[in-house]
Design a protein around this nucleic acid. Structure first.
Lengths: 110, 110
DNA sequence: AATGGTAATCGTAATATTGCGATTAGATTA
DNA sequence: TAATCTAATCGCAATATTACGATTACCATT
């Protein structure tokens, strides 16, 4: 139905999925890389760096903001976007917890 | 247009986004956790663990397989699903590379 | 050969995503 | 105040995702 049955999963699973979903688009990866390098913090600079329209970039920024990965401070007429340090680390830790839960195979199947 | 302009991004960015997208649903997180713990390797066991229909689980498994994170070996009538060790490590490394590219803020903006 | 179990696929419906042009709201400058 | 610049939002179209029941294909038993 295009709608996820979130209630049957844990809060933690949903939060992790939300982080991952935000990372699940190359444009958003690209934006985050720009923000990480701090070469572009102002929205307009991001638009200039990517071959996407202003409205499209704005929407991607909105999704990253809703996932919690970034935050935007209004600076006069423009908006300064930055990575949310706390959530960024939290996301990394959550993802690594999943990856690390897999111990090297001992044989069994496959 | 609901279709991603993949060609304007790098292969690496697209690959990372693909991994993240696969992780972007709580059901798939849940499945991967089961596989990581090896409590469920056979498809049927996964279906039993989750309150989702067989066809829905099968579809999620397909997406995880297409992203490369898991593989399935046919064992008689049933199918044994396991994490693809190599791709798993590759995915973790790619994601961490992005996260680690952000150095703690020194001030600038936000 | 007939039956039963397992898992992929098909078809369908509801909803979400991606992308853009156009418009709008706020701040800045002339 | 008028003109301008910035970024969010609206409206739309194309496509993708999520979910399920039904069907199908394939093993394994009987």
């Amino acid at each position: 139905m295009g709608i996820t049955k979130s209630h049957i999963f844990t809060v933690k699973e949903n939060k992790l999925a939300k982080y991952a979903k935000a990372l699940g688009h190359p444009a958003r990866i690209s934006i985050l890389k720009l923000l990480a390098k701090k070469q572009a913090c102002v929205c307009g600079d991001i638009v200039d760096e990517l071959p996407l329209s202003q409205s499209t970039v704005s929407q991607h920024l909105k999704e990253l903001k809703e996932a919690g990965l970034i935050k935007g401070d209004i600076e006069g007429a423009s908006v300064c976007y930055c990575i949310d340090e706390k959530e960024w680390k939290n996301a990394q830790a959550s993802i690594n917890q999943l990856f690390d839960s897999y111990k090297d195979k001992v044989g069994s199947c496959c």
